[in-house]
């Protein structure tokens, strides 16, 4: 479960519709994952106390910057119980992508998050294509390739 390469989601998950995700952003506005249908979504569950999460932020910034025009949306769901901790983290490691908040962790439960961080790649049809646990800079190139390939797919 801590493999750091992309693992295809389990057979039962491959291509299954992504669970619902409706959460508030820092300004209290509600966002719905279903509204991103037609885009490729990189969804990341993180917390301020998680070391690899810190390393993943610069990479996710790059990803957003490079592929936003190709129809990629990077969405990060923060699972800190204290909003203050997330704010401190973001002050040190700014995010140029969407950050939503779920202090209760209900979304993490619905998505079956097994470790921090956990991320999901969702295709334009709203189906989960793969899941990824942990983050290592060396696996970034492989992730890039996976995402680029999915962006080519209509």
């Amino acid at each position: 479960m801590l493999t750091l390469a992309w693992v295809p989601a389990r057979a039962a998950d491959t291509g299954v519709p992504a669970p619902a995700l409706r959460l508030l952003d820092g300004q209290g506005r509600q966002h719905d994952l279903a509204g991103l249908r037609g885009k490729v979504v990189y969804l990341d569950f993180w917390a301020s106390w998680c070391g690899p999460c810190r390393q993943s932020f610069p990479w996710m910034n790059q990803l957003q910057q490079r592929h936003a025009k190709d129809g990629l949306a990077v969405v990060a769901v923060n699972l800190d119980t204290e909003a203050k901790d997330a704010a401190t983290f973001l002050a040190r490691y700014p995010a140029s992508f969407s950050v939503l908040y779920d202090a209760a962790g209900a979304s993490a439960k619905a998505w079956g998050v097994k470790a921090m961080p956990s991320s999901y790649l969702i295709d334009r049809q709203g189906a989960i294509r793969s899941r990824h646990i942990g983050f290592r800079p060396s696996s970034a190139a492989e992730l890039d390739a996976q995402i680029a390939a999915l962006l080519q797919t209509p």
């Binding site: 917390a47 301020s48 106390w49 998680c50 119980t81 204290e82 962790g105 993490a108 921090m116």
Partner: peptide
């Protein structure tokens, strides 16, 4: 204990 419930333990 769920993975996202470990913020206190990580201090």
């Amino acid at each position: 204990v769920q993975p996202w419930e470990k913020g206190h333990l990580a201090k």
